[in-house]
Each structure stands twice: as C-alpha cells, then as structure tokens.
Amino acid sequence: MIFMIKNKSDLESALVELCKITSNTLPYDVILALKKAQEKEDGNSKIFLDLILENIKIAKQNAIPVCQDTGPPFFVVYYPKGESTNELQSTIILATEKATKEFLRPNAVDPISEKNIGNMPEIHFQEWDKEYFQFDLMLKGAGSENVSCQYFLPDSNLGAYGDFEGILKCALDAVLKAQGKGCPPGILGVCIGGSRNSSMLEAKKQLFRKIDDINPNKKLFSLEKKIISEANKLKIGTAGLGGKFTLLAVKASALPRHPASYFVSFSYSCWALRRHSLKFKEGVIKFD
C-alpha cells in the first residue's frame, strides 16, 4: 500500500493507519506459520488453530482488532541524519492518542493514581545512513509480556552454565513456565548477553524479524532450531491444551556482556504477533 502525503502532519494520519493495520491484521509470514501448524496438528490443538485462523479472517474483514489486548504501542524508529527525534516523538504520541480514541484499547494505568490514562507508546530511536524513515510497530499483549523473562547464568537450580546448552535450558524453562499463559504457539525472541535492560530490549526487537528469515550467524541459527525442536517436545501445544506446536519460531541475537554478567533474555510473543512497518520518504508512505 502506497500513499502520497504533502507534509509531516499527514505523517500523523499515516501512523494512525499503521496502528490500525497492526491491530487488525497479522503479517503474512505469521499467518503462513499458523496455517502450516494447523495442517500438521490434530486433536484440540487443530480445532483451536482452525478457530484462530477464522478469528484472523473475521478481524481483517470487519476491520477490528485481532485480540482485544492491543498492548502498549512499541515503536522502533529509524531516521535519517539531521532529523529531530523530539518532533517524531510528538507526532507518534498524537497519533497514538488518536488511535486510542478510535480503536485501540486504553492500556496505560498510572500506578500513582491508579487511573487508566489511555496509552503511552514506548519509542526507541535509531539514526541510520538511509534517506528515509522507517517506523516499526509492535502491539504486544500483556499475557505474553508477563511470561517474558530474564535469566542469569550460571543458574544452579537449572544446572545451567554460561554456554549454549545453558541457554537452551533457560529457554525450555521459560517455555515450561509460560504454559498456556502466553497464548502459544508462540514466537520466542532471545538475546544472549548485554546488560539487564539492553538484553531484554534486544530480545523483543528480535520479534520484528520475519518468521522464515535465516540468522546469518550459524551458531545462533542452530541454537534457534534446537530451541524450537526441544520446546515442541514438551507438548504444551496451542493455548496450552496439549499438542505438537508450542513454538512457531525462535529468533536469537547476541550482545557483548560484562565478564561477570551472563544474562539471557526471552521475549515471548503470543501467536498473534502483530507487527507492521511504515516507510516514509519525500512525501511517499509505504506500509509493510
């Protein structure tokens, strides 16, 4: 979909549209992975996957949110040299406010007053060498966010050391504990290393990767495959009611770590991985 826009105020409307596309439709690669799982599944899980696919269809046809939990909007914004992030931030906040009035669920509670104040987007800015803007948006519900977690290696309870076997043990423990609460079949974003906060953020950013992309790092690629195959042996299944598919994909990355710190972080996404992006260059907007 390509739109022509005249000025930056139109960008606000385009961002509202991005919120709408993201809450109402799943990316093609995610739908494809769900269809593949549905074909191979049987029993309760097959019935549930059928209904999940029907739900995706209903949401698209009626232009309504796939899931009522439209999350706090999570933006990663790439911008060309010389642009103001303050301006971009204001535009995103205004767009989110508008989207909340129209269709997003208000998902921000002020812990001081305990009042629901609408929505507050989380925005991460990154300058890049390209000449256009890219807004990546993810709407992630609390069910899957609540089962996302971080481990510190070595972990004596798990018998896990600071190596790839240790990371695998942590991943399987995370999937075991998540059970049906994170709405499987899930997609697991992984980050090895980093600090407490950079690690968790990088794990979540991994969920922007397409399901069928190939990790250029061979060691990480084989770790991803290993985690999927071992996790699916746990038979937790769709919605946690038993079945062959507990994870649809694993996406892993690594960051340098302090010699004394070995964090491994997992960002769990439900099957309804809602992520889309918007590219903006010289008056032209393109959604993906």
């Binding site: 999940i52 029907e54 739900n55 009626n62 309504i64 949110p65 796939v66 009522q68 519900g141 049906g180």
Partner: peptide
C-alpha cells in the same frame, strides 16, 4: 471454561 486465547474478534461476535 477455557475459551479461545487471542480470538477477540471472533468472540466479540
């Protein structure tokens, strides 16, 4: 009773 996780659109109907 467990109902359809994530299926807000279908269940709203």
């Amino acid at each position: 009773l467990h109902t359809l996780s994530g299926c807000g659109a279908l269940l709203a109907q």
